[in-house]
Design a protein around this nucleic acid. Structure first.
Length: 793
RNA sequence: GCCGAUGUGGCGGAAUGGCAGACGCACGGGACUUAAAAUCCCGAGGUGGCAACACCGUGUGGGUUCGACUCCCACCAUCGGCACCA
């Protein structure tokens, strides 16, 4: 069988006949929206990991079509990104051309692999028709006060010459390139995602997502309940606030620490300490995040010369600055209770500060973080931690010294990138310092002679006239930053519904009909970045009445990684990369799809094995021969195959639905193994099985559908086979008989027989009766159709 | 350190609390062939035994249960996430 020729034939046929075009306005059938995370079109083309997730969704899409759903199964390209920009810098060519070429190659490969995408709806985030609407929602966020242009402390990456968001940093280095990242103050566009923190947390309870992903998002949002406590400064009218989850330990206070960047530091530093404090601040500023965290476990700090007054007992305690306190979290100041907090303990030890135990179990020279009764704590004495926290917050609120509060770790979404190849931020900075939005969208990227930024400034600074704008006679300058990669990917799933609409993101009626996405499959690495931003934006669009649901992705699944044959991550340097083009040439797309689905559970990482795909190729050849050469397919019945056929129809559909493709394929193999033993393969079963196999191996099954059964129309919309539950079961079943939980025999009984008769049968078995004779039966256990267990003494 | 996941033959992996190892790969034997490949049939967790069969066996140690890969507790290992978040 010439699988290459067959696959080519059907690719062309599907293309020509528009087999997989979706009429999104056909509301007569139930909808099913099945989506893949769209790829960045790199110069290398697809790697074998891509077809894994794409085959999974394609199988579901194909089955759902046959089950009568109107299926939307689109594909597009996350086309802005660093490699294209670096290519442009290197060659002087526009990154757009490079990107388009890569997209064309991706489309070729995706068609080659037989994915049933509707190619009329494909999108590219770098297309002005698309990013017009990325810019549009940015402007809406600005109007609603959620996008802000402010001076903030940002993650600056010198190596990339740009600012990065928290999720783009791994171990204090940039995710791309691994360059060091430092904190820097810059005027930046940021989006107020923390405003949605609570809702983003709540929404996780509504969605069918992997637990671990939900947990990662919960940790990232980082909800914390505690109290803000207000401290007065001795001999001054200034105050500052600390945040603590352990308000109950206020009686154990021995000092306070402000972050080095805290705005009060200058004002409260005494003359004597000024030099030391300034030196310390300077040292901190120079350190990267990495140095400040991992290399600096020692709790450094400097005394400011000022004292705070403990609001609950009036005692004076010294105020320090120390970089273990983060300016960006909560109030940027903490209270030091060394007796009951490990970090405070380490700090106190280093700086010779007193330790006041206030919970039973604590001492003056240890750190006790457990629970216990409070002591030396006035009105808290005798209470446990939980009661004491509540009581203290009550006291603080009554005395106006503080209040209970909830805070989140989730930070603003840093939205400016100092790059060329991204969506231009549609804002103009006027001479008077105000910001005006660009009214006519899209604001397209200008052509450039030079794509590299100069002197640490964004490349668009060199765009000449493009940057200068006059609005109502007043001069201004365009924002020269571009948006992050996560901007376009935060809403692309809406655009597939209506990719050419120039009046809206998509027609409101279509959004109402098609959202949410029913199944979304993509890599685990997006567990926070993309998946959190998309949820944020969707929630926002929900508030604006644009989207009918808060959560955009009802069911989410992460495919695992395909490792090299040596169980290591595939990489050029390890020399263990396998290429989809080669595999399709040698084994066919059907075999590649089927093998990747058969390797193991979709979510697991699993090593590539060349003999494995050879085995699948042989299996497909065997199926081909059964249909074309065996002469077994006849109109006759064959009772021998009845049960296994109905079981197979049942199991395959259920497994596809649950994305358990490996066991679905096993079941299909069990079925064909049974067919191999028979002389007659009833035509009804042959057709049914072909339909079951079609989602996995679409090319070969289309060919057999035409060649063997003489059909002129595609199999893609043929009704999905049904099964008869009764016929999946045996009339007779074999039961295991145990005596004292040890298997001693097997009996054959009628299916669903009464327990009484099964027991009788079991006891009459010769081996069993031998073992139980002369003994007392203490207990009789019958598991219907499975087992009998007799406990004897 | 905290959170999450995983641990089963030579390998990839199956098993609503009920026959562990389905299905496949690799392997061994056989048929076909002058021969090889392909194909088809058969075998196979480990140990002992000619064999029937016996014993052992799902990371380790306990527990619940008539019965545990499955549930509970503790521990070990691997992977992923967060990490001075007060």
């Amino acid at each position: 069988m010439d699988f290459n020729a067959i696959e080519r034939k059907w690719q062309e046929r599907w293309d020509k006949e528009g087999t997989f075009k979706t009429d999104v306005w056909d509301f007569s059938k139930p909808k099913y929206y099945v989506l893949d995370m769209f790829p960045y079109p790199s110069g290398q083309g697809l790697h074998v990991g891509h077809p894994e997730g794409y085959t999974a969704t394609d199988i579901v899409a194909r089955m759902k079509r046959m089950q009568g759903y109107n299926v939307l199964h689109p594909m597009g390209f996350d086309a802005f990104g660093l490699p294209a920009e670096q290519y442009a810098i290197r060659t002087g060519n526009h990154p757009g051309g490079f990107t388009e070429k890569n997209i064309a190659n991706y489309i070729r490969q995706l068609k080659m692999l037989g994915f049933s995408f509707d190619w009329d709806r494909t999108i590219s985030t770098a297309d002005p028709k698309f990013y017009k609407w990325t810019q549009w929602w940015f402007e809406e966020l600005y109007k609603d006060g959620l996008a802000k242009y402010t001076e903030t402390s940002v993650n600056w990456c010198e190596g990339l010459g740009t600012v990065l968001a928290n999720d783009e940093i791994v171990d204090g280095k940039s995710e791309r390139g691994g360059f060091p990242v430092v904190k820097r103050k810059m005027k930046q566009w940021v989006i107020d995602t923390p405003k949605y923190a609570e809702r983003l947390l709540d929404g996780l309870n509504e969605v069918d997502w992997p637990n671990s992903t939900k947990e990662i998002q919960r940790n990232w949002i980082g909800k914390s309940q505690g109290a803000v406590i207000k401290f007065e400064i001795y001999g001054s009218d200034k105050t500052f606030e600390v945040y603590t989850t352990r308000a109950d330990t206020l009686f154990g206070l021995s000092y306070c620490v402000l972050a080095p960047e805290h705005k009060l530091v200058n004002e409260i530093t005494s003359k004597e300490q000024k030099l030391a404090v300034e030196k310390y601040i300077e040292e901190c500023a120079k350190k990267s995040d990495l140095e400040r965290t991992s290399l600096n476990k020692e709790k450094t700090g400097v005394f400011t010369g000022s004292y705070a007054i403990n609001p609950v007992d009036g005692r004076k305690v010294p105020i320090y600055i120390g970089d273990y306190v983060l300016a960006s979290y909560a109030t940027g100041a903490v209270m030091g209770v060394p007796a009951h907090d490990e970090r405070d303990f380490a700090f106190a030890k280093k700086h010779n500060l007193p330790i006041y135990p206030i919970i039973e179990g604590g001492t003056e020279d240890t750190c006790f973080t457990g629970s216990g009764k409070h002591i030396n704590s006035d009105f808290l004495n005798g209470l446990d931690n939980k009661q004491a926290i509540a009581k203290m917050i009550e006291w603080l609120e009554e005395n106006k010294k503080g209040h209970g509060t909830t805070i989140y770790k989730l930070r603003d979404w840093t939205f400016s990138r100092q790059r060329y190849w991204g969506e231009p931020i549609p804002a103009v900075h006027m001479e008077d310092g105000s910001v005006k939005l660009v009214e006519k969208l899209p604001l397209t990227l200008p052509e450039m002679k030079e794509y590299k930024g100069k002197n640490g400034l964004p490349p668009l600074e060199n765009a000449g006239e493009w940057t200068n704008v006059t609005i109502n006679g007043k001069k201004g300058k365009r924002d020269t930053n571009t948006m992050p990669g996560s901007a376009g990917s935060s809403w692309y799933y809406l655009r597939y519904l209506d990719p050419n609409n120039d009046k809206a993101m998509a027609d409101p009626e279509l959004i109402r009909h098609w959202m949410p996405v029913d199944l979304y499959v993509g890599g685990y690495e997006h567990a926070v970045g993309h998946l959190l931003y998309a949820r944020f934006l969707n929630n926002y669009l929900y508030d604006k009445g644009i989207v009918p649901v808060k959560e955009p992705f009802k069911k989410l699944f992460h495919q695992g990684m395909i490792l090299g044959e040596n169980s290591e991550k595939m990489s050029k340097s390890r020399g263990n990369v396998v290429n989809p083009d080669d595999l399709v040439r040698d084994y066919g797309a059907d075999a590649l799809r089927m093998y990747e689905m058969f390797m193991g559970a979709l979510e697991d990482s699993k090593p590539w094995n060349t003999t494995g795909i050879e085995g699948i190729r042989k299996y497909l050849d065997r199926v081909w021969r059964i249909y074309t050469e065996s002469g077994k397919i006849k109109d006759n019945e064959n009772k021998n195959l009845e049960k296994v056929y109905h079981q197979t129809v049942k199991k395959v559909a259920a497994d596809y639905e649950n994305l358990d493709f490996n066991t679905a394929i096993s079941q299909m193999m069990i079925f064909t193994n049974a067919v191999m033993k028979e002389e007659v393969f009833p035509k009804e079963y042959a057709i049914g099985f072909l339909k079951l196999l079609n989602p996995v191996a679409p090319f070969m099954t289309e060919e057999l559908w035409e060649k063997v059964f003489g059909n002129k129309k595609t199999i893609a919309y043929e009704p999905w086979p049904t099964y008869d539950e009764e016929k999946t079961k045996d009339n007779e079943v074999e039961l295991v008989v145990q005596v004292n939980s040890k298997i001693v025999s097997r009996i054959v009984a009628e299916a669903n027989a009464e327990n009484e008769s099964v027991l009788k049968l079991a006891k009459s078995d010769s081996k069993v009766s031998e073992l139980i004779s002369g003994k007392t039966i203490v207990k009789e256990i019958v598991v219907p159709n499975r087992l009998v267990n007799l406990i004897v003494k």
